[in-house]
């Protein structure tokens, strides 16, 4: 029990004194996961809207693929990205392996199906008559899509939260493609694994607390945004 209490005390100290090593890890985590989430949103939300609205040949196959993607094992994603980015791999020339770019790529692959799938489900749940009503009121397809996104905002925000939650807390793929290199690719989750193995529980606990706080803050911000939108 003492080891935990000591760890927590030291962790609070590190947090209060804004330990530079700690800040560097937190900053890199936010940058890579933020970038991956942003890419997933920019690609995934329009794709989710499109899939939610359109009926086409082969849609079931696409939807099944998206749902499968929502449950992708991170280590398998890590392995695939590793193989693609390794020197002998088809994208080896990019030189991304063991760089933050590789982590962004792996995290995007993990978050994208979640953003697409949950957005698609939320949009598909909107009655088709509403689309006709909006068209009848003179809305263009772009305006209809934006209105539907607003109507499905709870689902879309859930998609973003799910995407962020999946990647900020992910360790397997990040470890494989990032390599946990100090000052370069060390992020919160990989650092926790490393510090725990080293026995530096204070830093591990501090990092864990920050990870929890980040996830809590992200969810709180999303809920606040939803409330703000609800009151319009």
């Amino acid at each position: 029990m003492d080891i935990i209490l000591d760890g927590v005390k030291q962790a609070i100290g590190l947090l209060i004194h804004l330990d530079p090593a700690l800040l560097e890890i937190v900053a890199l985590s936010l940058v890579v996961s933020g970038a991956a989430l942003l890419i997933s949103m920019l690609v995934g939300i329009p794709l989710g809207v499109w899939l939610g609205l359109r009926r086409f040949l082969g849609r079931r196959l696409v939807v099944t693929t998206v749902y499968t993607g929502m449950g992708l094992p991170p280590v398998v994603v890590g392995l695939a990205v590793y193989l693609f980015l390794s020197r002998q791999g088809p994208l080896g020339e990019l030189g991304w392996l063991f760089t933050p770019k590789a982590i962004v790529l792996a995290q995007t692959i993990l978050a994208l199906p979640l953003v697409v799938g949950i957005t698609m489900t939320a949009i598909a749940a909107i009655p088709r008559e509403l689309v006709l009503q909006l068209r009848s009121l003179g809305a263009t397809q772009g305006q209809i899509n934006r209105t539907l996104l607003y109507e499905a905002r709870a689902g879309v925000l859930a998609a973003i939260v799910a995407g962020f939650g999946a990647i900020i807390s992910e360790v397997g793929a990040v470890m494989m493609v990032g390599g946990n290199i100090e000052h370069k690719t060390r992020v919160l989750t990989t650092a926790i694994v490393l510090e725990t193995r080293k026995g530096d529980f204070a830093l591990a606990i501090a990092l864990g607390l920050i990870l929890l706080a980040l996830t809590f803050t992200a969810n709180w911000l999303m809920l606040s945004l939803q409330r703000r939108l609800d009151s319009r």
Partner: peptide, 10 residues
């Protein structure tokens, strides 16, 4: 424009 049987309010 059309007003449908269900009001379809946003």
């Amino acid at each position: 424009t059309t007003v449908f049987q269900k009001p379809m309010l946003l």
